[in-house]
Amino acid sequence: MEEFTSGLTKIGTGLAAVAIFLGLLLIIFFVGARAKGKLQFPAAMIVFLGPAVVLLAYGLIAPAFLTTVGSFQNATGQDFVGWANYSWIFTTESNRKVLLNTAAWIVIAPLFSTGIGLMLALLLDRMKRESISKSLIFMPMAISFVGAGIIWGLVYEYRDPSGVQVGLMSQIAQWIGMDDPPNWLLWQPWNNFFLMVIMIWIQVGFAMVVLSAAIKAIPGDVVEAAELDGATGWKLFSRVTIPMVRGTLIVVFTTIMIAVLKIFDIVRTMTNGNFGTQVVANEMYAQAFVQFDVGRGSAMAVVLFVAVIPLIAYNVMQLRKERTIR
């Protein structure tokens, strides 16, 4: 009971913060609206744009700059060490593994997510009742990576092969005749793939919903014309449907790729980067907040940043191209 009342106090704190925030805003609006003549414009600018600019400057612009500087400094951030942190990232054996894992993640996970998503979107397009399936496949997107990690931890649960199985995957393996299923999460290098399955499980719904909308947006007369010309099945799919949704397909792919590049929670909850499953984002966290090596942590963050840029740039270009074609 006690924790319940203290819980209500906590929610009350949150609501009070919102009330204070909105109240302050109302007062500022009231004062701002009094501004007359020449003061009108600066008053509006400060009130409307000021908060966002200040928060972005403190929260993103300055930190990005400081992290870049920090990546050239030592563990405590007191001395400059040149490119030492970067050469540590790219030449250490353990880090090569980290980079390799991350590379595998950003190719395999988006490929499967987009592929299965596209297949489902095409299949759903031919079904009359689609909403329940769509909801259930999309549902994992609402679940946190930590929650998903626990859900899949249960699937991968390991027990001695001679005894009763608790993990679904080992049980299925035994049912189909694999008498001695391994401990999936320790089985290198395949354990990386089992972690990717969690990401794919989450992202397929996203790919499916977006691609489904794109397929529905293909004008009916285009499909009809193709059908009159005798295109059916595979031909219709490869010559009409795919080219028509190509742009969306690429954007879905790169969007998932960006999410995968920053994957942290899944690896942290499942293996904490042990057993050869470490990735850049979790290594960054480990260096910065477990080892307290500010320099190496910062350098890892910069590597992430540099890797994300071309993906987002490509995404933006793709979007702009489509706008101009239209």
Binding site: Y58, A62, A64, T67, G70, K262, Y285, A301, F305
Partner: peptide, 24 residues
């Protein structure tokens, strides 16, 4: 310019901000 700068800031991953913000 302001609009495009804000748009471009999406490029910065969370990881870039954590350490400096925590220090702040």
């Amino acid at each position: 310019f302001v609009f495009f700068t804000i748009f471009a800031l999406q490029v910065i991953p969370l990881q870039m901000s954590l350490l400096p913000l925590l220090t702040m």
